[in-house]
Structure formats: structure tokens, C-alpha cells
């Protein structure tokens, strides 16, 4: 197994997802199977090839710096699980 329980826990902590015990067992197995599969790409020689991230030639896209309408904060807050006045509510983080 390429992905150990320790690696798994480390990654899981970075993506901030809680898992049931059952999900965790299945996920480690599935990920190892997937990694084994994607490792087969190493049969392809890619030396001296630049990695590609975007299909058109990469250049900056500029626009005029003009004031335009934007969506109001109030409207956006309508979808928040909990707000107080104009603020999102989260559990206390500074003790």
C-alpha cells in the first residue's frame, strides 16, 4: 500500500472532512487502488516536456478599472447558515 494510514490522516486533516469509520476503511482502499492505477502513467516518457495547465496561450487579462455594480452583501448573506448584523457567525476562536 502506497498510502499509509499516517499519510491518510495527514491529508484528511488538510481537507477538513470528517469520516465515519466505514467510509475511512473504504476510502483508504479506494485511494490506494486509484494511486496504483494513476502510477501506470509513468510508463510514458515525458522528459523535456513542459507541463500544461491551460489550453490557450497564457497571458494576463486586463480590464478597465471602472466602478461597476456588484451583488450586495445583504443579498449574499441570505445564504449564510448564521449571521449577526452584517457578520458571519462562527464559534469563538480566541479564548
Amino acid at each position: 500500500m502506497k498510502l499509509t494510514q499516517e499519510d491518510f490522516n495527514k491529508i484528511l486533516n488538510t481537507v477538513k472532512i470528517s469520516l465515519s469509520e466505514e467510509e475511512e476503511i473504504k476510502l483508504i482502499k479506494d485511494l490506494n487502488q486509484l494511486i496504483e492505477f494513476i502510477d501506470t502513467m509513468n510508463e510514458q516518457d515525458s522528459e523535456n516536456v513542459e507541463p500544461m495547465a491551460y489550453i490557450h496561450s497564457i497571458k494576463n487579462v486586463y480590464r478597465d478599472d471602472e466602478v461597476t455594480d456588484s451583488i450586495s452583501g445583504q443579498k449574499l448573506h441570505e445564504n449564510a447558515p448564521e449571521i449577526s448584523d452584517d457578520y458571519y457567525v462562527v464559534p469563538r476562536i480566541i479564548h
Binding site: D7, T14, I17, L31, I35, M41, S46, V49, E50, P51
Partner: peptide
Amino acid sequence: VKRRIMLGAYVLSSGNYESYYNKAGRIRSI
């Protein structure tokens, strides 16, 4: 969704970035 997020975090994690993410980008070029 969890499976894909985890695989994504794995291929982007330090030590894997070059051998997975960049390698995939090279194959994409090819």
C-alpha cells in the same frame, strides 16, 4: 466527492506535486 477531494489533496501534497500534478501536466502537453 470526498474520494475526489482526497485524491486531489494527495497529488498536490508536497513530495507528490512534481511526480503527480506536474507529470500529469506534461502528459497533457503530449
